[in-house]
Structures are given as C-alpha cells and as structure tokens.
C-alpha cells in the first residue's frame, strides 16, 4: 500500500487524538481502542477524516475493528477502497 496513506493516517491520529505527542504514537499494529486512543466519537472523527482526505465513502457496516482498529488495518482499508474506485467501470 502507498506509504503516504499510512503516514497521513498516522499524522491525523497524532494531531487529532494525541495533540501532537509523537512519543505516544501507536505502532502500526497496536489497537487504537485498547490503547485508549479513540473512543466512540473518535472513530466517527476518523471516518470523517478518511472520507474527506482520501475521497472515499465509508458505509456503516464497514466501521468494524477489522478495518479500523490499527493504523495498518486503516491503511489497508483505504488502499483497498482507492483501488476499487480506480478499477471500477466508468459510470459505476
């Protein structure tokens, strides 16, 4: 997946949830819930960020820990969404 997706998501988490504290930034595969980085409103802030920053749509059923609970999963989810959009037939 593109490195910039991972970096952009990481930067958003550091700025928005950790208020600039890079020292507390989670590893790529660390749980954002279990490390108390996002809560129920935080996850919706994340959805809003992904939709606006990466120009993707996130359906409610997609808001699951399998897609959202680590930086690595978020990056893969966004990359998959972007790829699907690029390969979708025109007008689809």
């Amino acid at each position: 997946m593109p490195q910039s997706i991972n970096a952009d998501i990481r930067a958003f988490i550091i700025e928005n949830f950790l208020f600039g504290d890079e020292a507390d930034a989670p590893e790529d595969d660390a749980s954002l819930i279990e490390n108390d980085i996002v809560d129920s409103t935080g996850i919706l802030e994340m959805v809003s960020f992904l939709e606006e920053h990466f120009a993707i749509d996130v359906a409610d059923p997609e808001i699951v820990p399998e897609n959202f609970d680590t930086i690595a999963r978020l990056s893969a989810f966004v990359a998959g969404k972007k790829k699907a959009r690029e390969t979708a037939p025109a007008g689809a």
Partner: peptide, 12 residues
C-alpha cells in the same frame, strides 16, 4: 455518536 456504530465496535 453511538447510532452509526457496528455491534463489534459497541462491544469494544
């Protein structure tokens, strides 16, 4: 904010 949450996240 809970309205859009999936059961997995609510449980988490």
């Amino acid at each position: 904010n809970l309205k859009r949450q999936t059961p997995d996240y609510l449980a988490a």
